[in-house]
Simulated assay, not measured.
Amino acid sequence: MATSKNWTKAQLKLAFHLYCQLPFGKLHKTNPEVIRLATLIGRTPSAVAMKLVNFASLDPAITSTGRKGLAGASNLDREVWVEFHADWEGLAIECEMLRRDLDPSPTMDEADELFTSEDFTGETRTVVMEQRIKQHFFRRAVLSSYGGRCCMSGVAEPRLLIASHIVPWSKDKQNRLNPSNGLCLSAIHDRAFDQGLITLSDDLKVIVSDELKRRNDQFIRTVFLPLEGGVITMPDRFIPDPAFISRHRNEAFIDNRKAIG
């Protein structure tokens, strides 16, 4: 990708794509992923790191905590920000394809396995590949926002963590990859949330269902009941959207489903 003084839209999309997937504390020039992107687009690691922090200055989750990012975001930066929020799925795929055009060599990323897999061919392979790319982007975006820890239990083992959808994948196509529709949860907390056994209030406090409270189960009493009324650990970016939280509480939470039924 040719270098010029001004950033191209494709370069900005790749930068924002990376911004979404890196923890806030790793938006610096010595990060290997920053260096790799800089090499691919013909810019310095310092320039890429600066652009990532420009994007941070547009992020309400960053600025609302008193952090400012780096002033100087351009109109094109803002345009890319808005486009991503309007079409997370399309732009996640587009950016992955842009990256692969610049560097077709395989990496260790989960999505890359699809390009060497012999299990799928033709149209099926394309569909599965795109699905994995989307899942990979959403997982990285959500887990990095929460610092790689379950926001309810604090568990930090990556193999036990799930990028959990607040509004299920099948219920809201437009927000399937929106990181504000995600929570970082351990596998068991994800299962309880998905089944509507726990939910969140508008101020992001955990609500435990009456069904769990009635269980005479030591594990449930030890793991779930102490969560009641506690505020989840807030993410560095992509704070859960109140509209998604409300939908989960009203549509998925088992106590409310019973009340409606």
Rank of each mutant, 00 (worst) to 15 (best):
R99W: 12
L161C: 08
H28L: 09
W7C: 00
N256T: 12
F120T: 03
I198V: 15
P60D: 03
S246V: 09
M129T: 15
T65A: 12
H165N: 14
I62Y: 02
A163P: 01
K29Q: 14
G122L: 09
K5M: 15
V48Q: 08
T8E: 07
T222Y: 12
K258S: 13
S246P: 01
A156E: 13
W169R: 03
V142G: 04
A86R: 04
C184W: 03
S144Y: 04
T3D: 11
P32C: 04
I93P: 01
D203F: 07
A38N: 08
A15W: 04
S209N: 09
L160G: 11
C20V: 08
R249I: 00
R221T: 02
Q195R: 14
S117D: 05
S246M: 10
L58R: 00
F224V: 00
A156W: 06
H136S: 15
V82I: 14
C150D: 10
A243R: 14
K213P: 00
F193N: 08
P226M: 10
P168W: 03
L52R: 03
E96K: 11
E228C: 12
T222H: 11
V34T: 13
L102P: 02
L185K: 02
V142L: 07
G182D: 04
S74C: 09
E33R: 14
Y19P: 05
D103P: 02
I166F: 10
T107C: 04
T126R: 14
A252F: 11
I188R: 06
V34S: 09
Y146H: 14
G69E: 04
R257H: 03
N75P: 02
G182T: 07
D210N: 15
D172Q: 11
F115G: 09
L12H: 06
